[in-house]
Nucleic acid binder design. Sequence first.
DNA 1: AAATTATTTTAGATTTGTCTAAATTTATTT
DNA 2: AAATAAATTTAGACAAATCTAAAATAATTT
Lengths: 233, 233
Amino acid sequence: MQNYSSSAENYIKSIYHLQEQEGMVTTNELAAALKTKPASVTDMMKKLKAKKLLHYEPYQGFRLTQEGNKVALHIIRRHRLWEFFLAEKLKFTWDEVHEVAEELEHVTNKKLIDKLDEFLGFPSVDPHGDPIPDANGKIKLSKKIGLPELPLHTVAIVSSVSDHSSELLELLEHKNISIGTKLEVKKKFEFDSSLEVRIGKQAAFTISKQLAENIFVTSPFPSLPGGEGKRNS
Amino acid sequence: MQNYSSSAENYIKSIYHLQEQEGMVTTNELAAALKTKPASVTDMMKKLKAKKLLHYEPYQGFRLTQEGNKVALHIIRRHRLWEFFLAEKLKFTWDEVHEVAEELEHVTNKKLIDKLDEFLGFPSVDPHGDPIPDANGKIKLSKKIGLPELPLHTVAIVSSVSDHSSELLELLEHKNISIGTKLEVKKKFEFDSSLEVRIGKQAAFTISKQLAENIFVTSPFPSLPGGEGKRNS
DNA sequence: AAATTATTTTAGATTTGTCTAAATTTATTT
DNA sequence: AAATAAATTTAGACAAATCTAAAATAATTT
């Protein structure tokens, strides 16, 4: 695996995440995600294509090649391991880890990352519940569904959240929800799409539509309906 | 404290280290230390001067301003904290930490570094025995002398080494010497400048001139003759 | 002190990543 | 389907960091 500039890595990572949701990524989308200009995106796309990381024909949008995907997963591995380190060892809160990991992820020393992984006890998910690729870039994709899609009276485990803001963190802490929490939906209200949710044997409480849409769950049993949840770490 | 490019940081750090030995730093010296060309050094010196980090007049050499020194000490703090982390937590060997820390030191997030410092238990020296500046950039300069300058029959503590190669590490491990080892010089041989050294009550053994010159010691008692030892981490 | 050598600086190029403004292509309307 | 709008690419420029080759300055030697 070669070395790429921090800038190139950021493009690769963003394309990977945008791809998860839609098949093909467009210039404007990527420019918005990276807070840069469309012209800059086109420039970089040419370079990434030359490096065979990207399928790209002018005006047709782009997607990562197999090699590009592999590179992306290694960047994401570094990012999520550092996030885990920051939260677990340095006691950063959940909403702070992303920004710092954005910088640390560009230190590309294989031995460093593998030893960090070992030091952390080979964690499988980062503090937001997103899976951490292993040293070979393999990632465990668990079937996640948004809380609004969870059938009534079905126990599920909170596996990730799609927003990492301190505002969401505050609300989740108040409601006593974190990654790993087992809960079930007791009732859905048509009027405002709010949900009545219960954790274990505690009293049920209400969750707004906005909050529910940012919570993803997996079943503690074999398989559940629904597809992939969007993520952004 | 502003942010400087990784490149600028490397120049600042190198100037700091070169300054420790000689007062004024020259273009060629710095170019050699950074493995770059003199013309590139001149270019960067103009920029650092514009940022008021450097005293510099064409053809006159240069040295850091107070502000430049402060910046240098913060870079060195980051470098040495990461070195400590790599050795202590990730179990890197002594000769491996420098290279990785060279990359990590450029991640400039104050909270990260201060929390790392706390996590590590506020270490005072890095794995090579060099002092780690505190959060305010204050550094404890202990009076170090090279082993050849240590008077006979005087117990001293190995405080640092000026070479970080695996070859030196191997030799020191074989002789059972590390940072913190208490030893005394029993005899000096004029012929090859080798020393007869004893650790505690163990049998004395020989240390070559080359090895002795790379070992620095401090007294366990008040003060010792001699000045600063050169360092490079 | 004049000549030679070494050091340092300048001038001009190159690479990487970015930008603005204009041109091109694709998509959408009426 | 022609006109308009939106998206994308190209062309040309800029800043940062580097380099080579030439010019300028300082140091050393005879």
